[in-house]
């Protein structure tokens, strides 16, 4: 290590936890795949396959769905085991509004907290005040108003919710189209109309004006909920997602390692159908899917 012990070498003043640093990590994950893992072995498989980050949780959404009961934050020991195993960022989920779970996750040093509708909500009116933390948060959204409310609460990344644990991409497409369609419509609105947009979206007018100016969400927009194949990843990337979360889609499939790798390739080369075709060949069975009409609970409806 180069040394400089001269008396005038004062420590550099460092500011942690600012919006740019929080959003910055999301920027680094763009074009990548974040994979749900329930133990250190799966985390290793995910990292080996090229995951840009892993999401530590006790049960993947498909199992939460079939097991029922209250789904909570993971055991800290499980999260620490995963942190000790991989070198990529480790994320973990807290229940909507459960700020004490978020405090615990921050104390464990996770790299991102997902305030997630996949877990059972802890508060029926309030999301976590995310500005109060040094660790960044990602939140789900089904439409632009929901996304902007989460950003106003301090979320540094938005993921379209989709319908987790179904292996059905239809809800993810609906939510992405809704968010991105409204962003495009705001882009052609005049300055007076932006106030009406803010009212309709139940969101701060300053964020609506920012979107009108930049033509994009103020934080990265990723996609989650229902991605099961490389072509699913290509679809949502072409629709405008900047990275993908894959939950049950990998470890509920026949050959998780190969499928994970194939989804990574398809996310990078999403515009190249020939590459998506090549990596999709002979992957074995995808996770068993569920039609929307068969669902007892719609997770996407959680959050306000």
């Amino acid at each position: 290590m180069p040394q400089d012990n001269s008396p005038n070498s004062t420590p550099t003043e460092r500011v942690t936890g600012g919006a740019r640093v929080k959003r910055g990590l999301a920027e680094m994950l763009r074009g990548g795949v974040i994979m749900d893992v329930v133990n250190a072995e799966q985390a290793k498989v995910a990292e080996d396959a090229g995951a840009v980050a892993v999401m530590a949780l006790e049960r993947v959404p498909a199992d939460i769905r079939s097991d029922g009961g209250v789904a909570r934050m993971s055991d800290p020991a499980l999260i620490q085991g995963i942190q000790a195993t991989v070198t990529v960022p480790v994320m973990a989920k807290a229940r909507i509004g459960h700020f004490a779970e978020a405090q615990v996750l921050e104390s464990l040093g996770v790299d991102y907290i997902d305030e997630s509708e996949v877990l059972t909500p802890a508060d029926e009116a309030h999301h976590i005040d995310k500005w109060a933390y040094t660790v960044p948060f990602v939140c789900g959204a089904t439409n632009l108003g929901e996304a902007l409310r989460r950003i106003s609460e301090g979320a540094a990344m938005i993921r379209s919710k989709g319908e987790a644990g179904t292996g059905n991409i239809v809800e993810a497409v609906r939510h992405l189209r809704s968010i991105l369609g409204d962003i495009r419509r705001i882009g052609v609105a005049d300055s007076a109309e932006l106030y009406d947009w803010a009212k309709k979206l139940a969101a701060p007018v300053s964020l609506v004006q920012e979107i009108a100016e930049s033509g994009r969400l103020p934080v990265p927009l990723f996609c989650a909920g229902g991605i099961a194949t490389p072509a699913d990843a290509s679809l949502v990337m072409q629709l405008g997602a900047e990275a993908v979360f894959v939950g049950s889609g990998i470890f509920k499939s026949e050959d998780p390692s190969r499928r994970a790798r194939a989804i990574v390739e398809a996310t990078t080369h999403y515009r190249e159908a020939a590459i998506v075709a090549k990596v999709s060949a002979g992957l074995g069975e995808a996770m068993p899917g569920q039609e929307e009409s068969e669902l007892a609970v719609k997770l996407a409806e959680r959050g306000w």
Binding site: T16, G17, V21, L25, D111, Y112, T134, V135, P136
Partner: peptide
């Protein structure tokens, strides 16, 4: 360090 140690400064 991890994300909690991520920072901004003037250089």
């Amino acid at each position: 360090g991890r994300q909690l140690e991520s920072f901004e400064c003037d250089l």
